[in-house]
């Protein structure tokens, strides 16, 4: 029996309560800044695209429109959740939750600085890849559960698109792994101390970035929600917080993909050069700056390029990226073996 007086010193405290408490605390330390970043990413997107199109963007709510994300959030929170009559109720509610949950759980393995990682697992990069490949279910379930033609078409487009681009993304990851010799994300970053991988692997870096755009359903690959023909696609039947969860999930996924790009190619938390003014800045700041840079590129692309036609999208994925990445994996392996650079 547990004696209430010695309970806190007991085995329960050290074995169960304390570890759970620390993990929950660390999770909050990751999720809260992430959600604030998501909120301000929506503002940054509108501001950046506004400036690129010679507009001002949101500038009414708060100074420089800084309170706009909260106004939007409050609006969505106060609206009525409408569940269509012919929909599959449970799945209809479950789909946005799944999208949002998946966009958060992936952050468990991202290293923010040397040793600053919640779960330093051996197969970190595979975990990230697995979670990002699960993202398609939120969309496909939403499209099917809505019982609407437009939503369903959007979901099918998205499923085909995400599966296609995962293939080339997988090969990009394999070619990085060949150099590093480990699936651990911290090891991948440490290996970039000599040179960031985007220099020797520049074509792979570009392909990874483009695949990340396709994987997050961002312009110019935002066919799942092509508003011109599908009236916003898979989320057309969603309202209020169910819609907000999709929205949050999509933006959190953008940040995650930027984080993956930073870890794989831009040296994670490492400073650009390891000398005095640069290596005094904490690694987490460098990591955030790199994520911000990649995110800016996401927004830049959206403001610049028109949407792809669907057959062009498929051609790019299967006939251009897949053969090229396959060739690059073989070439990387060949170079590593020929010069005896294989990681021991």
């Amino acid at each position: 029996m547990v004696n209430p007086e010695t309970w806190f010193e007991g085995v329960w405290w050290s074995d169960y309560v304390l570890p759970t408490g620390t993990i929950v605390f660390f999770i909050l330390c990751i999720v809260l800044p992430l959600l604030i970043s998501v909120a301000y990413l929506t503002l940054a997107e509108r501001k950046v695209i506004g400036w690129m199109q010679l507009r001002k963007g949101p500038n009414v709510v708060g100074p420089f429109g800084l309170l706009q994300p909260f106004a939007d959030g409050a609006k969505l929170f106060l609206k009525e959740t409408i569940i269509p009559a012919g929909s599959s109720r449970f799945l209809f509610i479950f789909a946005p939750m799944l999208t949002f949950i998946l966009s958060l759980v992936a952050w468990a393995v991202i290293p923010f600085d040397a040793g600053w990682v919640l779960a330093d697992i051996n197969v970190g990069i595979l975990y990230l890849f697995a979670i990002s490949s699960l993202g398609v279910y939120g969309i496909i379930i939403a499209g099917w559960a809505s019982n609407s033609k437009y939503a369903f078409l959007g979901a099918l487009r998205s499923a085909a698109q995400m599966v296609s681009y995962e293939v080339s993304m997988g090969f990009v990851i394999v070619s990085v792994l060949l150099i590093v010799g480990s699936l651990n994300l911290s090891d991948i970053v440490e290996k970039q101390k000599t040179v960031w991988f985007f220099i020797p692997m520049f074509p792979m870096f570009v392909i990874f970035f483009i695949s990340a755009l396709a994987e997050t359903n961002r312009a110019p690959f935002d066919l799942p929600e092509a508003e011109a023909e599908l009236v916003s696609g898979y989320n057309v039947e969603y309202s209020a917080m169910t819609f907000a969860l999709f929205f949050l999930g999509e933006y959190a996924n953008m940040i995650l993909m930027s984080g993956m790009t930073a870890v794989l190619f831009l040296g994670g938390w490492l400073p650009p050069v390891d000398i005095a003014p640069f290596n005094l800045i904490p690694g987490v700041i460098w990591f955030a700056l790199k994520i911000a840079f990649v995110l800016f590129c996401f927004l830049w692309v959206r403001a610049t390029f028109p949407r792809y036609r669907y057959d062009q999208l498929m051609r790019l994925g299967w006939k251009v990226f897949l053969p090229f990445t396959l060739f690059w994996v073989v070439a990387t392996a060949g170079v590593l073996v020929a010069f005896d650079w294989l990681p021991k």
């Binding site: 697992i121 051996n122 890849f129 490949s133 699960l134 496909i140 599966v163 997988g170």
Partner: peptide, 19 residues
Amino acid sequence: AEFLAMILVIVYVGAVAVL
């Protein structure tokens, strides 16, 4: 067997089951 677990999720859940 964490490698098998991840491959199961990537291959079966992420690709085969989607199709």
